[in-house]
Write a protein that binds this DNA or RNA. Structure first.
Lengths: 209, 209
DNA sequence: TCGTGTGAACCGATTCACAGCC
DNA sequence: GGCTGTGAATCGGTTCACACGA
């Protein structure tokens, strides 16, 4: 394992490799070469070998990669071979959908608390979780093992939600709100906006005419 | 407008600029410099000027950019200053959440048809749309003005959904399914996977210890 | 022989620095 | 004077090409 600075793009691709490898495993494939995997992921074979080389030597020369082992190795490298405790802030339409989305738990991201500052929502049960006042966040962090925050508030309340999460000591944030947030630089933030993907498609379709 | 090949990263950033500019407009800001905008977007000021230069000259030297005009110019450049007709394939949990998500329509992506191959779902009304057999897709394309396809099927059915969309003549696909798909190269595909963002956060938090 | 792992070459995107214009 | 627009320089990531090991 090299402690070099690993490209952000590599991390994104590793997530894709897991997705494709999981599909191969489902289809009963046990060994795969970087070339075959590359085709399925629409990337260059050397790209895959380079990406994996940042974390170790997972392949067998002349053979390829054992699918099951490679999945485990990549998950370990990413730090997703364990369960992460998550806190959601903002129980609106999107927040409810996220709370009900089972995929997160299946992939090791366990939403253990739902916060909102609206008194009408506090006390409500959504997907088995009681909505709690956001001010209570800090007091629940240790108890519930909260590590990653999810922001699903309206844009004008995203910064306040972020402040609560930072103050609570969470080190990572996934922000679904339609707003950028400012946090100390040691906190990791990922922005999720589905419509960005629609914009990309719209642009490509428009310019291909 | 330069017909050069525009970096994919530029397109992603333009979507971010729209988001931030919309926030500034909401706060009553009328003019912004590339430096101020850059700070809010966490990018380099020259980056913004370069990105915009691909599409035209939108700024005023010595002054900056007029927020309202710039939003309109970027939207026009991206081709999102009009309404796009969308078709959704796969009415499971995720599909239902997407159909109910109002943000798409607000941003000009109007979901006008919902398809599924499960006979138990066909005929059901979700968010005002009747679920129709996927085989009917092609016959509805012209009638409803369908241009962009949304895949929200289980992974093993994603490719079949893609085939229907391609056969129907749609030119762009936003794929929420947990699987890569193969389509003719003239078709644009964007992959959406929330858990990828969680993986990035998990990795960064893990490696910062 | 076949396919991985990796230094070297390449390519594209980001940043710099300043000319050009309000 | 101030900020945009843009060629030039820089930086980082991708691809190539081949040595190495099963």
């Amino acid at each position: 394992m090299k402690t070099q600075n690993i490209p952000k793009a590599t991390i994104k691709r590793l997530a894709v490799y897991i997705q494709v490898l999981t599909g191969l495993k489902r289809d009963g494939v046990e060994v795969v070469s970087s070339e075959k995997l590359a085709r399925a992921c629409s990337v260059n074979p050397s790209q895959i070998r380079k990406d994996l080389a940042y974390f170790g030597e997972f392949g067998v020369r002349g053979v390829g990669y054992y699918v099951h082992e490679l999945i485990a190795s990549i998950k370990h490298s990413l730090g997703v071979d364990r369960v992460w405790g998550c806190a959601l802030v903002g129980v609106g339409n999107l927040g409810r959908a996220l709370l009900r989305h089972k995929e997160f738990a299946l992939r090791g991201f366990s939403i253990r608390a739902a916060f909102d500052c609206d008194p009408y929502k506090i006390g409500e049960i959504v997907s088995g979780l009681e909505v709690v006042c956001t001010r209570q966040l800090k007091s629940r962090v240790d108890e519930l093992g909260l590590e990653i925050g999810i922001i699903s508030t309206p844009p004008e309340r995203a910064q306040r939600a972020a402040n609560y999460l930072v103050e609570g000591g969470l080190k990572g944030i996934v922000n679904f709100a339609q707003a950028r947030i400012q946090v100390p630089k040691e906190i990791t933030v990922e922005y999720v906006d589905f419509t960005h993907h629609f914009y990309s498609v719209a642009f490509n379709v428009s310019s291909s005419d």
